[in-house]
């Protein structure tokens, strides 16, 4: 039960990114207020808290029902469940694309119910987002796509010229900066999307079916990339259908079914199931049935 605390190395790395960020902020001459707005600082509290959240579309379509859970800083969480189980709504709630019909929702210590509309862009800058369909700007090059996330926050051109290549080399696309998304394979496009999501050094990264359109081999590459990002201290929430991948990773698994929390199993990071609420097999067969 005590293994929620991130390993030593993770804490160390997080401290590193923190100081790097401070250095960067002072370099840009950004106001402290703005840089604080662009980062999630949950303090000692959890990164994400759902408190009895219900999301209803219209009068009868309930997408999420009475959901309560919390996700700690630095965790890697799989969000699983069949189509229509509420995964997409879960993610839309986190980036305030939709608001809860009922219940409390906190992201990085911020109360999303009390967040003004005008502050939503700042929330989204603080959260990296990766989507199944990549959501790249097709009329812009790979470099420009990653740069856009920085331009949005008012980064100087010189720091953009420095950071974007760093990020492209992290995702293994150093050579393709001047290509357009249409000229890349699906896996490469997803890497661009990850680079864009991570270039602002968010504390929370959300991936909605990032491997949904990719073959298994490419999926593993993407998965490894997300895992590496998680290892820097970033909380990662990944919605997926990919059972094989989830089994392989042995991470915390949150399963939704018809908008209700079906299973929340925390597995130890080094391959040992911490405590099987329902066993993995049972859950697996339940998934197969649906």
């Amino acid at each position: 039960m005590s293994t929620d605390a991130p390993p030593e190395s993770t804490t160390q790395r997080r401290a590193d990114t923190g100081s790097a960020r401070r250095a960067r902020d002072s370099q840009n001459g950004q106001s402290k207020r703005e840089s604080r707005q662009n980062q999630l600082r949950p303090g000692d509290g959890p990164m994400v808290v759902f408190d009895d959240v219900t999301k209803q579309y219209g009068s009868d379509a309930v997408a999420i029902r009475d959901l309560s859970l919390s996700i700690e800083s630095g965790e890697f969480v799989f969000l699983v469940g069949p189509s229509g189980s509420g995964k997409s709504t879960f993610i839309k709630l986190l980036i305030k694309e939709v608001s809860p019909s009922k219940g409390g929702l906190w992201v990085g210590g911020r109360d999303l119910n009390r967040m003004r509309r005008s502050k939503v862009p700042y929330l989204r800058r603080a959260i990296g987002c990766v989507f199944q369909d990549y959501k790249l700007l097709t009329s812009r090059t790979v470099f420009e796509n990653v740069a856009y996330a920085l331009q949005v926050t008012g980064e100087s051109p010189s720091s953009i010229r420095r950071k974007v290549p760093e990020m492209l080399s992290l995702v293994g696309l150093s050579e393709k900066g001047s290509r357009y998304p249409g000229e890349l394979s699906g896996g490469e496009q997803q890497r661009v999307s990850i680079a864009r999501a991570f270039v602002n050094q968010p504390r929370l990264l959300i991936a909605d079916e990032p491997t949904g359109n990719l073959d298994p081999e490419t999926s593993i590459g993407i998965m490894q990339l997300l895992y590496r990002i998680n290892r820097t201290g970033t909380t990662v929430i990944m919605a997926t259908h990919d059972r094989e991948l989830v089994d392989k990773m042995q991470m915390r698994v949150i399963e939704l079914g018809d908008g209700v929390l079906v299973r929340d199993a925390r597995n130890a990071r080094y391959g040992r199931p911490q405590r099987a609420v329902p066993t993995g097999d049972e859950a697996g067969s339940a998934e197969d049935a649906s």
Binding site: E97, P121, R125, C129, K135, L137, T138, Y148, A149, V152
Partner: peptide, 15 residues
């Protein structure tokens, strides 16, 4: 679609 992506990346309306 492009505008939608910009909003998801955290662009303000005036941006």
């Amino acid at each position: 679609r492009e505008v939608e992506v910009m909003k998801l990346v955290g662009a303000t309306n005036w941006f």
